[in-house]
Amino acid sequence: ERVRARYDYEAQNEDELSFKKGDIITVLEKDDGWWKGRNGKEGLFPSNYVEELE
């Protein structure tokens, strides 16, 4: 599954994923509120910062 970033997100910890608004992220795992994904790097990000691609 792929999602698009709705906002910029700056990683707060080294296991998190940074991205810019409009970036496409491949979702690897979904957990409550935090998803694991890849966009060149791999890490956790808040699920409310992304939207599913149509």
Rank of each mutant, 00 (worst) to 15 (best):
E29I: 11
E14R: 08
E54L: 12
N48T: 12
D8I: 02
D31C: 15
T26Y: 13
E52T: 13
R38N: 10
E42G: 05
I25S: 00
E52F: 12
T26A: 08
N39V: 10
Y49N: 05
E16P: 03
K21P: 01
E29V: 11
Y7Q: 11
G37E: 01
L28G: 03
G37R: 02
E42R: 05
F45L: 03
K41S: 12
G40Y: 10
G33E: 12
S18A: 06
D8G: 07
E54Y: 13
E51S: 07
E51Q: 08
D32V: 10
S47R: 10
K36D: 00
R2W: 11
F45K: 01
Y9Q: 04
R38S: 11
Y7M: 13
R38I: 10
K41H: 11
D23E: 10
A5T: 04
E29K: 11
N39L: 15
D8V: 02
K21E: 09
Y9M: 04
E29A: 14
Q12P: 04
D32E: 14
E16R: 01
V3D: 02
D8K: 05
W34N: 04
K20C: 10
K20W: 07
V27R: 01
I24S: 03
E16V: 00
I25R: 02
W35A: 01
N13T: 11
G33K: 14
G43S: 02
E54A: 13
P46Y: 06
Y9R: 06
F45M: 02
Y49E: 00
G40S: 09
V3A: 08
Y9C: 06
E14A: 14
D8P: 07
E1S: 13
Q12F: 07
A5V: 07
K21C: 08
R6A: 10
E16T: 04
T26G: 05
E1N: 14
L44Q: 08
Y49I: 07
T26Q: 11
R38G: 05
N39H: 14
S47M: 11
W34A: 04
W35F: 08
G22P: 01
T26W: 11
V3F: 11
G43Y: 01
K20H: 09
K36M: 11
G22H: 06
N13Y: 07
N48G: 12
A11H: 01
E29T: 11
G33T: 13
E10Q: 13
A11L: 04
S47C: 13
Y7W: 15
K36L: 15
L44H: 11
N13E: 08
D31V: 15
F45N: 01
E16M: 05
E54I: 13
W34Y: 10
E42I: 15
L28A: 04
F19N: 01
N13D: 08
W34Q: 06
A5I: 00
W34S: 05
I25E: 03
E1V: 14
F45W: 01
S47T: 07
E14C: 09
